[in-house]
């Protein structure tokens, strides 16, 4: 929801980033306030997933210019774990499998690490078990997930639900969902969307990175940004997503050649 009085959570100015000296992000500007849901859409290779990873601090990307502030704190000097503790959460497009570590162990470790940092009490295994089972109901997850190794042998939908479960546990200020809809059938999509909707509130914010409009039928964005060649070339309301769905992306590039410049 848009509320002009709410505070700015994320402020990105002129962000440029490279991978292996190839320019991917070429000057991103975006402001996200508490309570807002932003969608970033764009074709493959437009840089939207890179933007998500740069926000989370992936070491493969080098930030060459610009600034990123989270709650008026410089994010770019922080390590990935410091960003997580500061309130960033990235739901991965391809969550990593960790055979040998039970999901419950991993979830509790992540939860307690973040709790300790926030000056709160850790939960012991029994307390955590009650807590996590409650959160799992939100995502219609089978408790068996706790005993299995992290993401090992999970279906695409199960992995994504496990990501949203982590989001629910860690209670981030800013959640970034990177192509969370990819590989989900419509039922799984609804469950994931429902989970996200229950987590969002007036004090946190969400960025949804997606290819397709379909997830946005269930998580309704306040803003839709279109990325092309490493820049945000158009910003609109939720109706922009529908327009993209029917008209494709081509009309934007012709409208914005002056802005976007030549693609590399």
């Amino acid at each position: 929801m848009i509320n002009n009085n709410s505070k700015t959570i994320l402020d990105v100015r002129g962000l440029c980033a490279n991978i292996d000296s190839t320019k991917i992000l070429k000057g991103i500007d975006i402001t996200v306030k508490s309570g807002e849901i932003h969608a970033i859409m764009g074709l493959n290779g437009s840089g939207k997933s890179t933007f998500a990873k740069v926000l989370a601090g992936h070491s493969a990307y080098e930030v060459t210019a610009g600034s990123v502030q989270l709650n008026e704190q410089d994010l770019l000097t922080l390590s990935p774990e410091e960003r997580a503790l500061a309130g960033i959460f990235l739901a991965f497009q391809y969550p990593i499998e960790i055979p040998g570590v039970a999901n419950s162990q991993f979830l509790r470790l992540a939860y307690n690490t973040v709790q300790t940092q926030r000056g709160k009490e850790e939960l012991d295994p029994l307390e955590f078990d009650d807590f996590v089972r409650e959160k799992m109901k939100l995502l219609d997850m089978n408790p068996d997930f706790l005993d299995r190794s992290v993401n090992e042998g999970f279906s695409g939908g199960e992995k994504k639900r496990n990501e949203i479960l982590q989001m629910a546990l860690l209670e981030p200020q800013l959640s970034i969902l990177d192509e969370t809809d990819s590989g989900l059938d419509i039922d799984a999509l609804k469950i994931v969307a429902n989970g996200v909707n229950q987590i969002t509130n007036k004090d946190n914010a969400t960025i949804i990175v997606t290819h397709y409009q379909r997830l946005l039928d269930y998580i309704v964005p306040d803003y839709v940004h279109v990325m092309q060649a490493g820049r945000i070339v158009k910003t609109g309301g939720k109706e922009l997503a529908h327009e993209l769905e029917t008209r494709g992306y081509d009309w934007i590039s012709s409208d914005n050649t002056a802005n976007a410049g030549a693609t590399v």
Binding site: H58, P80, E81, A84, I88, F89, F92, I96, Q117, Q166
Partner: peptide, 14 residues
Amino acid sequence: HEELFYLQSRGLSE
């Protein structure tokens, strides 16, 4: 590296 990043993004130190 991707596995390490995943865990770090959940708050674990390197």
